[in-house]
Amino acid sequence: MKLNIKKIFGLKTSKTNQNETDPARFKNVENLLNEIGGLSRFTLNFFRELVRQPFEHREMLKQSYNIGLSTLPLIGITAFIMGLVLTLQSRPVMAQFGAESWLPGMVSVSIVREIGPVITALICAGKIGSGIGAELGSMRVTEQIDAMEVSGTNPIKYLVVSRVIATTFMIPILVFYSDAVSFLGSYIAVNLNGFIAFPLFINQAFDSLHYYDLMPATIKTFFFGFAIGLISCYKGYFSENGTEGVGKAANSAVVISSLAIFIIDLIAVQLSEIFHVFTL
């Protein structure tokens, strides 16, 4: 399919008069730039409030507990199936090359480096991102955020900082948990068609992992969590147009967070490659 760039950016096609003035001409570009500007200002506000006292410890802990606990079952089930399916799908190919014994190593590298963090972050974007977007969105349209402001409480600090910190630190923990459950799924899948003792499986899985597999994969999960929290809070905090706006806020929180996860992952892969080359 041919992409019409001019149409996407609200520009006129060559058949129309170039001198003709149309106020809606640059509307899409303007909206995009407004969003980028708004998100940048919001990020600056976040960092300013992050370092300013008083700190909302209790709210941060409450959000961390809610975010972590509410996502645990979903992450667990998905991760278990992910480990199981990955192993079952890879087994026949590995068997063709007589490399079945490499299965734990192959699965562990795939899960720890890429599949675990990305799938977990995407699930969190859907579950946590939509929750934050809808919660803050409904607080905005029912004037609860305004009420907070007029009662002398900074809503950015109380609502945004606490949630962004919670997602930033909870996503890496959830990724570790997801990796562990995936290993369990993989171990069961390996044992469906053969036998391997659990200590040996774990030994083989960890033998294949190196420092440069673990570090970039762990660091990028903090960025995933930060992006999910910040984008979801931004969309919810500035939602408008009543209940319709709340739905849109939740929806765009998920879509933009998911997109951000892939972009961060792409950058992380490139940076880790460069880092790897320099450390060789």
């Binding site: 607080m139 029912t142 004037e143 609860q144 009420a147 907070m148 009662s151 900074n154």
Partner: peptide, 23 residues
């Protein structure tokens, strides 16, 4: 400034049309 505004807001109460109770 934000600090002065917060001080003022403790002296001026606001009751919203939709009550705005934290649900």
């Amino acid at each position: 400034n934000p600090h002065e505004l917060n001080e003022l807001r403790t002296r001026v109460g606001f009751i919203f049309q939709g009550n705005a109770l934290y649900d």
